[in-house]
Amino acid sequence: MSSSLVWYLREFARVEWIKKFLFAKTAPLVTPTHFRGFPEPTGKTCTHALFCMMACPAPGAIEVVHAGDGWIPKIHKGHCIRCGLCVEACPNGVLKSGRIRETMEREGTSLLFSFRIAIDTELCTGCGNCCTACPVNKQADAQMGAGGHSSNDDVIMRVQEGDIVVIHEDKCTGCKTCEVSCPNGAIRIARILEGYQQPVQEGF
């Protein structure tokens, strides 16, 4: 039947067909919820670890700012590339974007920061500026004076007999305050970002 001319004429004369021919539009496209958008706060408490800022590859995209008593990460549109690294690097789950958090939970993945302190003994004069500048040292030993001497074993580093000694590298928070305060550029902090995955159970 569809080979006859009359059939074609009838087919094309239908109101439905003419409407479609003249006014058809593809449905307005909605962004699927699993697409990564600009990261949004989940409402969990930010502890100011600043791992989001350290992980972010785009200059000026994320800033942790004061919000009332606490802190909150602020995303700058026009800088953020929606990579989602800040969402993954946050140890407290403060940010969310698409289904990144769900995927991390399901697959047991995480991004972990660790910090290494490297001191060039050739350049270091043992002035102790880094020891007194370090905020973690300040908390461990409030009495530490200029010169960086300390009898407290909880500090990250201290000056012993004119030489700098690193005791607790693991306590370093990667803030790099010491780098800025060193007059000789002798101390360098390496921020190391590693991806981990928990072994998935059988039958998963």
């Binding site: 785009a58 000026g60 026009g78 800088h79 953020c80 590339i81």
Partner: peptide
């Protein structure tokens, strides 16, 4: 895109 707003990753 980000480039005309901020220079994106190139503005270093």
């Amino acid at each position: 895109g980000n480039c005309p707003i901020s220079g994106c990753l190139f503005d270093r």
